[in-house]
Measured scan of single mutants.
Amino acid sequence: ADFLSNDDYAVYVRENIQVGMMVRCCRAYEEVCEGDVGKVIKLDRDGLHDLNVQCDWQQKGGTYWVRYIHVELIGY
């Protein structure tokens, strides 16, 4: 899907992401590398560009918070 802005994409992720879902990092962020796959373990839905998504990352080996714009949804 094509999104006009980071805000549009962040809204899409916020409306669709669920705890337990698998996500792929589509934009490297601090300790999380692009392409790493993680399981969503906690969500904080306050802002669009806060650290909203806590995942247990496979490559990184452990949990880390990222923003909506850092992840793509790959289902369960």
Rank of each mutant, 00 (worst) to 15 (best):
Ala1Gly: 13
Ala1Val: 15
Asp2Asn: 14
Asp2Cys: 11
Asp2Trp: 08
Asp2Val: 06
Phe3Gln: 12
Phe3Cys: 10
Leu4Pro: 08
Leu4Met: 11
Leu4Ser: 13
Leu4Cys: 12
Ser5Gln: 07
Ser5Asn: 13
Ser5Asp: 13
Ser5Phe: 03
Asn6Thr: 15
Asn6Tyr: 10
Asn6Ser: 13
Asn6Ala: 15
Asn6Glu: 15
Asn6Ile: 14
Asp7Tyr: 08
Asp7His: 06
Asp8Tyr: 05
Asp8Ser: 14
Tyr9Cys: 02
Tyr9Val: 04
Tyr9Glu: 05
Tyr9Gln: 08
Ala10His: 09
Ala10Arg: 05
Ala10Leu: 07
Ala10Cys: 05
Ala10Gly: 08
Ala10Tyr: 11
Val11Phe: 09
Val11Lys: 14
Val11Met: 13
Val11Trp: 12
Val11Gly: 14
Val11Asn: 14
Val11Ser: 13
Tyr12Arg: 14
Tyr12Cys: 06
Tyr12Val: 03
Tyr12Lys: 06
Val13Phe: 11
Val13Met: 08
Val13Ser: 00
Arg14His: 10
Arg14Thr: 02
Arg14Phe: 04
Arg14Gly: 07
Glu15Cys: 05
Asn16His: 11
Asn16Gln: 10
Asn16Lys: 06
Asn16Val: 05
Asn16Ser: 06
Ile17Asn: 04
Ile17Tyr: 06
Ile17Ser: 00
Ile17Arg: 02
Ile17Phe: 01
Gln18Val: 07
Gln18Met: 13
Gln18Gly: 09
Gln18Thr: 12
Gln18Trp: 04
Gln18Glu: 07
Val19Glu: 14
Val19Ala: 07
Val19Cys: 13
Val19Arg: 02
Val19Tyr: 03
Val19Gly: 00
Val19Leu: 13
Gly20Arg: 04
Gly20Phe: 03
Gly20Cys: 00
Gly20Gln: 04
Met21Arg: 05
Met21Leu: 06
Met22Glu: 15
Met22Asn: 10
Met22Trp: 15
Met22Leu: 13
Met22Tyr: 15
Val23Asn: 01
Val23Glu: 00
Val23Arg: 01
Val23Trp: 03
Val23Ser: 10
Val23Gln: 14
Arg24Met: 11
Arg24Thr: 10
Cys25Arg: 00
Cys25Asn: 03
Cys26Lys: 14
Cys26Arg: 13
Cys26Phe: 08
Cys26Ala: 09
Cys26Asn: 07
Cys26Gln: 04
Arg27Lys: 12
Arg27Leu: 08
Arg27Cys: 12
Arg27Met: 09
Arg27Tyr: 08
Arg27Trp: 07
Arg27Gln: 15
Arg27Val: 13
Ala28Thr: 06
Ala28Asp: 10
Ala28Gly: 13
Ala28Met: 07
Tyr29Val: 05
Tyr29Lys: 03
Tyr29Leu: 06
Tyr29Ile: 11
Tyr29Ala: 08
Tyr29Pro: 02
Tyr29Arg: 03
Glu30Tyr: 04
Glu30Gln: 13
Glu30Pro: 06
Glu30Thr: 02
Glu30Leu: 03
Glu30His: 09
Glu30Ala: 10
Glu31Met: 13
Glu31Gly: 13
Glu31Trp: 07
Glu31Asn: 12
Glu31Leu: 09
Glu31Tyr: 07
Val32Asn: 06
Val32Leu: 08
Val32Cys: 02
Val32His: 03
Val32Lys: 01
Val32Phe: 04
Val32Arg: 01
Val32Tyr: 08
Cys33Met: 13
Cys33Lys: 14
Cys33Leu: 07
Cys33Trp: 06
Cys33Glu: 15
Cys33Ser: 09
Glu34Gly: 03
Glu34Ser: 09
Glu34Cys: 03
Glu34Met: 08
Glu34Arg: 05
Gly35Lys: 04
Gly35Glu: 02
Gly35Pro: 04
Gly35Met: 02
Gly35His: 07
Gly35Thr: 12
Gly35Ala: 00
Asp36Gly: 01
Asp36Thr: 00
Asp36Phe: 01
Asp36Met: 03
Val37Asp: 01
Val37His: 03
Val37Ala: 05
Gly38Thr: 02
Gly38Ile: 02
Lys39Ser: 09
Lys39Gln: 11
Lys39Tyr: 04
Lys39Glu: 13
Lys39Asn: 09
Val40Gln: 01
Val40Glu: 01
Ile41Trp: 02
Ile41Thr: 14
Ile41Lys: 02
Ile41Ala: 02
Lys42Pro: 00
Lys42Arg: 10
Lys42Asn: 15
Lys42Phe: 15
Lys42Val: 08
Leu43Phe: 08
Leu43Thr: 02
Leu43Met: 04
Leu43Cys: 07
Asp44His: 15
Asp44Tyr: 06
Asp44Glu: 14
Asp44Gln: 14
Asp44Trp: 05
Asp44Thr: 15
Arg45Asn: 08
Arg45Ser: 13
Arg45Met: 14
Arg45Pro: 10
Arg45Leu: 08
Arg45Gly: 12
Asp46Gln: 15
Asp46Phe: 11
Asp46Asn: 15
Asp46Arg: 12
Asp46Gly: 14
Asp46Ser: 12
Asp46His: 15
Gly47Leu: 07
Gly47Cys: 06
Gly47Asp: 07
Gly47Val: 08
Gly47Glu: 11
Leu48Met: 11
Leu48Tyr: 04
Leu48Asn: 09
Leu48Asp: 15
His49Met: 06
His49Pro: 02
His49Cys: 15
His49Phe: 12
His49Trp: 06
His49Thr: 12
His49Ser: 09
Asp50Tyr: 03
Asp50Trp: 02
Asp50Arg: 12
Asp50Thr: 08
Asp50Cys: 08
Asp50Val: 04
Asp50Phe: 02
Leu51Gln: 02
Leu51Ser: 05
Leu51Val: 08
Asn52Glu: 10
Asn52Gly: 07
Asn52Asp: 00
Asn52Pro: 05
Val53Ala: 08
Cys55Ala: 11
Cys55Leu: 01
Asp56Lys: 14
Asp56His: 05
Asp56Gln: 13
Asp56Met: 14
Asp56Arg: 12
Trp57Pro: 05
Trp57Ala: 00
Trp57Leu: 01
Gln58Met: 03
Gln58Tyr: 02
Gln59Ile: 09
Gln59Arg: 14
Gln59Asp: 14
Gln59Phe: 04
Lys60Val: 06
Lys60Thr: 10
Lys60Ile: 09
Lys60Leu: 13
Lys60Cys: 09
Lys60Gln: 10
Gly61Asn: 04
Gly61Thr: 10
Gly61Cys: 12
Gly61Trp: 01
Gly61Ile: 00
Gly61Ala: 04
Gly61His: 09
Gly61Leu: 03
Gly62Glu: 07
Gly62Gln: 15
Gly62Cys: 08
Gly62Asp: 10
Gly62His: 06
Gly62Met: 06
Thr63Asp: 05
Thr63Val: 13
Thr63Asn: 05
Thr63Tyr: 06
Thr63Glu: 09
Tyr64Glu: 10
Tyr64Asn: 04
Tyr64Val: 11
Tyr64Cys: 14
Tyr64Met: 13
Tyr64Gln: 11
Tyr64Leu: 08
Trp65Tyr: 06
Trp65Ile: 01
Val66Ser: 01
Val66Leu: 06
Val66Pro: 00
Arg67Pro: 11
Arg67Asp: 11
Arg67Trp: 01
Arg67Asn: 10
Tyr68Asn: 10
Tyr68Phe: 04
Tyr68Glu: 06
Tyr68Leu: 04
Tyr68Met: 04
Ile69Thr: 12
His70Leu: 01
His70Lys: 04
His70Met: 03
His70Gly: 03
His70Cys: 15
Val71Asp: 02
Val71Ala: 07
Val71Pro: 03
Val71Asn: 06
Val71Lys: 02
Val71Ser: 00
Val71Phe: 02
Val71Thr: 05
Glu72Pro: 00
Glu72Gly: 03
Glu72Asp: 09
Glu72Arg: 07
Leu73Tyr: 02
Leu73Val: 07
Ile74Val: 12
Ile74Leu: 13
Ile74Lys: 04
Ile74Thr: 13
Gly75Lys: 14
Tyr76Lys: 12
Tyr76Cys: 15
Tyr76Val: 09
